[in-house]
Structure formats: structure tokens, C-alpha cells
Design a protein around this nucleic acid. Structure first.
Lengths: 117, 117, 117, 117
DNA sequence: GTGGTCTAGACCACC
DNA sequence: GTGGTCTAGACCACA
């Protein structure tokens, strides 16, 4: 895994996990790697992994069984979608459309070329 | 003006000015507010405004008359468009579309509801 | 059984057993569940149950017959009361009252509504 | 400030700040000490202070002005009271009363001796 | 100056 | 073995 320059690593790790949940690579009740394991794997300090897990737990996306590890929660996928979808549609989309308008980019035309991806 | 959590304030201020240039609220040769004025207005440290102006000046979007103030350059609009357009299409758009896919948002449908804005 | 966030599970299990002794759901000479049984029942590692039993045994609340199991001791109830009562009154109560004061909760009023439980 | 053995330092620091807000030693819009300052003052690592501040910010009790510092939010007091009061009454109080009953402590009598504090 | 992130490494309680 | 907390110290971007 390679990290983007300007976004905190722990958030990138969290996002990555969310993507894997959305794509169902990780499913509810799955145990995710321990902070140490994943730290080794990614070449990152366990504390940083911890922070990512903390972040996800605060949203109810993962949960902890004490002394055992972290697990994907049952509602993980719905939570992620609802949080991100709402944020995307209410906050980001208007900005994007406004910006396209200012830049003179026509959304409809654009889509013709990009929908195949 | 409200500031986004994770983006530097000076960039947000610069973006805001660009938007006003694109929408022709500011036109070539217009004098923009002094660093102090704008700082007061936005409740922001003048140094931060300075940084935004520096940034815009480095792109040739605004220029400085010593002892007088900052002004919009003649080519401001074209510069902004050329820079932002290619960045938008090449870097941001793919990410946006990928994300919409993951979230199960259909771009074409979305547009029907949003084109009126 | 659900476990509190910040208190060790083994202590919560021990407390729970004490409550059952105080309420006489468990009586002297009763045999309590084996470590394995209770572990299964609570979805908890048997070691954790063991630790709870060890803890209670160290206070003389339960005792072990080798190869047979754990049993409630004759003096269990008195021991629990004497230990917990003084700890409650000397240590916890002052904190509780102080906190209620800060939160603007009036102890006397509260009791009127709660004494029926 | 002295720290309790078994509760995380960062939470004790957060609680302490809450107490000061409740008692109006700190008021809305006040700037609280920087993480470094308070770290020095308490003989604690700045990271630990940071964690306490993070925690409080997540409840909206304090907020950050970037590059400037942390400030008490307008609603700080109400937030603290509502959070703690609800937790106290709904979660802790029933346990306390149940425990007193089991231990044979009479709430009404107790109050007579303690209300003077 | 401020906070924010990250590392390396330690120690601890708990399972 | 697991997570959780803490320290010391570094580096960075931002105001």
C-alpha cells in the first residue's frame, strides 16, 4: 500500500478498509488484522494503525473484543454508505458542479467519455 | 466565510478569489481588498491573506502595485481555467467517478436532478 | 451478559456472582457452574472465568473441591457485605454526591422518584 | 494535579477541564492552555494533552482555531451537563441503588448524614 | 507560536 | 497473544 503525500496515513488506512468492506472483501464478523500485524505488513507504526481502528470504531464500523481483536460490525457497510453518500451528495457534489460550471465543463458531455471506466 | 476542516485556509481564500474572478464578480484591473482589510473581514491573520495573495501572484492571477495594492491581472481568467480544467479532468474526475461507483450512485441519473442549478 | 467498557471482564463476572449471592439466588454450599460451562454461556474465555473464581476464592467467598467444582462458602454473604459496604460508604459515596452537586441533581428529590424500585 | 492509578491520564485531564467549565473557572470563548504549556505544567507528554483535547473536541466542548489554540465552546456547559446527567441517571444511578439495596444500606438515612457536605 | 502526525519503544492489564 | 496508554522526540504545515 502506498500513501498519498498530504492525507494522514491513518485516514488512508481507514479509507482503505472501508473500501474493502464496500467491495465485500471484508464481511461482517470477520476479524481484521491486529494492530501489530497490519503495522508490520504496511511498514507503519502500530500506533498509527491503532488510530485508524479507533476512528473506525467511533463510527461503529468495527468493534473490539477485548484481548481478541477487532471485527467488522454487522452494520458496517450501511454505515459507510450512509455517511459517505450523504456527505458526497450534500457537500461535495454541489461544489463539484459549481466548479465545473465556472470552468465551462459540460457535465453531460463529460459523462459520455467517462462512463465506460 | 467558513473554512473547510482539512484544507489550508490560505488555499481556500485563494480558491474563493478565483471563483469570483471566474464569475466576473472581480474583473481585470480591479483592486482587491488589502491584506489587512480582508484579514479583518474574514477574522483571519493578515499573514494568511498574504500567503493567499502570494500564491495567486505566483500564477500571474493577481499583481501588486507597490504602495497601492493588489489587482486582478488581465489574463487572470484564462490562467485559472487552463490550470484548473486540466487538473480537474485528469486528476479529480476519475476519483470522483470511482467513488460514486463504490457508493452506488448513478452519475447519469444524478445529473437529471442537478442540471437545473 | 453485557460488559462494561472500562472495567475488567473478570471483575464484572465476579460482581455479578456476588449480586446473586446477596440476593440469595445462590446459597451456601451451592455448586456454581464450572469454568468451562460459564465460559461457554457468557461467550468468554475460560481463563477469564478462572480469574474471577480465583478472585472470589481469595476473599473466601467461594471455595474449591478438587475434581468436583466451586461452591459458595457459608460466610459468603457476610464477607461480601462487610467488604463492599465500607468501601461503598467511605470511597464511592462522597464521589457520587460531589458529582451530583456539580450536575445540579438534588439527592433528596431524586429519592422520592426512585425509592419504589 | 495528581493522577488516579487506573484511569487513563488523558481522561482525567479531560474530566478536570469539564469540572472547571461546570464551575465556570473556564468560560465560553476562553482560550485554554496550548498542548505544550499544559504538558509542561502537568508534567505530562504533550501528546497526552492532545488526546484529552481531541476527546473534548469530539463532544463539541472545545474547538480549535488553527494556528491559534483551543477554546471553550459556547455550549460547553450544556453539553457536559446533558451528557453526564443522562449517563448518571440512566446508567449509574440504577446500579447504585440496586447495590445499596443488596448491601442493606438505606438511602434516606444515609442522606441525613451526608447532605451537609 | 500553534496543532497534527508519526515513529520507536516501553509498560500494562487483560484474554 | 490482544489492545491501550504513555513517553520522548521528531518533523511538518499552518497562522
Amino acid at each position: 500500500m502506498e500513501f498519498n503525500e498530504h492525507k494522514p496515513i491513518y485516514l488512508q488506512i481507514a479509507d482503505n478498509l472501508c473500501d474493502k468492506i464496500l467491495s465485500e472483501e471484508w464481511k461482517p464478523e470477520d476479524r481484521i488484522p491486529s494492530v501489530r500485524e497490519l503495522g508490520m505488513l504496511l511498514g507503519v507504526n502500530p500506533n498509527t494503525i491503532m488510530r485508524a481502528y479507533d476512528y473506525l470504531q467511533s463510527y461503529g464500523i468495527i468493534f473490539n473484543k477485548r484481548g481478541v481483536g477487532y471485527f467488522i460490525s454487522k452494520e458496517a457497510k450501511e454505515i459507510i454508505i450512509s455517511v459517505q453518500k450523504q456527505q458526497f451528495i450534500q457537500e461535495e457534489l454541489p461544489k463539484i458542479l459549481k466548479r465545473m460550471k465556472l470552468l465551462g465543463i459540460n457535465p453531460s458531455e463529460l459523462l459520455k467519455n467517462n462512463l465506460d471506466n
